[in-house]
């Protein structure tokens, strides 16, 4: 790898993401971690551009780094941040994560290397999408034609999930639920903070 190899960009952005995730794990402030999560999403969107996934990149930048942070901040305006308690069993958690991560990394050792054009993932249906989709759907962007045409039912299912989630959110916090629960909530909060 030479000094000006574009692979360095990939390496650098992934390193930045690791640093941001580490800081989120260390921080006690909820507000700061939500902001860093937005930065994390934006860094991943940058990485997706390098990895040729431009559609994913702009979706991640708008949804992951944009709307998601707004939703978090909206929820946090209703949830006061209490005094932080210590971590729940930090050593056990670290042990579980290290063991689990070691197993996952062991699993990647069998994988084809990054960018290998002969990897099994590229030899199945992807070729057909690339060679036939222009003729079949008349859309030059293959991601769009696969999303909306070849796998249209997937997208319909996705829409169903979003619809269900939207209804559930409206049921949970949409109506006049506040009037009923507000009084005991205030009493509880004092004991919760203490």
């Amino acid at each position: 790898m030479t000094l000006f190899d574009p692979a360095w960009i990939d390496v650098a952005i992934l390193a930045f993401m690791a640093i941001v995730a580490f800081v989120v794990a260390l921080l006690r402030s909820v507000f700061a971690s939500v902001m860093l999560m937005g930065i994390f999403s934006l860094l991943s969107a940058t990485l997706f551009v390098i990895l040729d996934a431009v559609d994913v990149a702009f979706t991640e930048a708008s949804v992951g780094a944009g709307i998601s942070v707004v939703v978090f901040l909206g929820a946090m305006s209703l949830i006061p941040s209490p005094k932080a308690h210590g971590r729940t069993r930090p050593l056990l958690g670290a042990l579980v994560c290290i063991a689990c991560g070691a197993l996952l990394i062991l699993g990647t050792l069998d994988m084809p290397t990054y960018g290998d054009p002969q990897a099994p993932i590229h030899l199945h249906v992807a070729d057909r999408y690339l060679s036939e989709s222009l003729e079949a759907t008349d859309v030059p962007n293959v991601v769009t034609s696969v999303l909306a045409s070849y796998r249209g039912y997937d997208t319909l299912g996705e829409t169903t999930v979003i619809f269900t989630a939207a209804i559930a959110v409206l049921i949970l916090i949409g109506g006049s639920w506040r009037d009923g629960v507000k009084a005991p909530a205030r009493a509880d909060k004092e004991t919760g903070d203490a």
């Binding site: 995730a21 580490f22 794990a25 978090f72 210590g86 991560g101 996952l104 290397t113 990054y114």
Partner: peptide
Amino acid sequence: PGLYNYWIAMVLMMMGLYIVITDPNMV
């Protein structure tokens, strides 16, 4: 680059899992 991308992805996943397991604040 070899398997570097995959390894970092695994490490990031485990950092996320660590936060989920050990942080008492649900947000």
